[in-house]
């Protein structure tokens, strides 16, 4: 009886530990693409697992995605880590800077089409689950 209790506690504790570990481990990962500029979502949010994506896509440099522009010229050795996309991409396009929706779509599906890998249809990213 006593032994049984200890076993039960161990199992429960282990489960908590496992969940905690996973949670801690995933903290690095972004689960949903979000931007504070999107107030009310029209379509379901897009799930995005940062590290898994980058492993699969073999992306080494951060600024492949987190790009930084100076005027129309891309700055090769700079990046925009820590910035929200909407800090540069507004609701409406400004001169050569695409608006936020277009920027996201071109960034993701544009690259997927070019690489012939990854989701491209609306509902492949904006999934209803």
């Amino acid at each position: 009886m006593k032994q049984n209790n200890i076993f039960t506690y161990t199992v429960i504790f282990s489960i908590f530990l496992l969940i905690g570990t996973i949670a801690a481990f995933s903290q690095e990962d972004i689960e949903n693409v979000h931007d504070s500029a999107f107030k009310k979502l029209t379509r379901p949010a897009v799930a995005f697992f940062h590290d898994i994506h980058n492993d699969k896509a073999a992306i080494e440099e951060c600024n492949v995605c987190h790009h930084m522009f100076e005027g129309k010229k891309r700055v090769e050795d700079d990046d925009s880590i820590g910035m929200e996309c909407s800090e540069c991409h507004y609701k409406e396009p400004v001169s050569s800077i695409p608006d936020l929706i277009r920027a996201y779509h071109l960034q993701c599906s544009g690259c997927h089409l070019k690489q012939k890998a990854g989701p491209v249809l609306c509902g492949e990213c904006h999934r209803r689950e």
């Binding site: 029209t42 396009p93 695409p98 608006d99 929706i101 779509h105």
Partner: peptide
């Protein structure tokens, strides 16, 4: 339709008001 307008937005960078889904 929003999805259709957004396709035009993506391709030609033009858009117009769309219906709520």
């Amino acid at each position: 339709l929003s999805a259709h307008v957004i396709m035009f937005k993506e391709s030609w960078n033009i858009s117009w008001r769309w219906l709520p889904d």
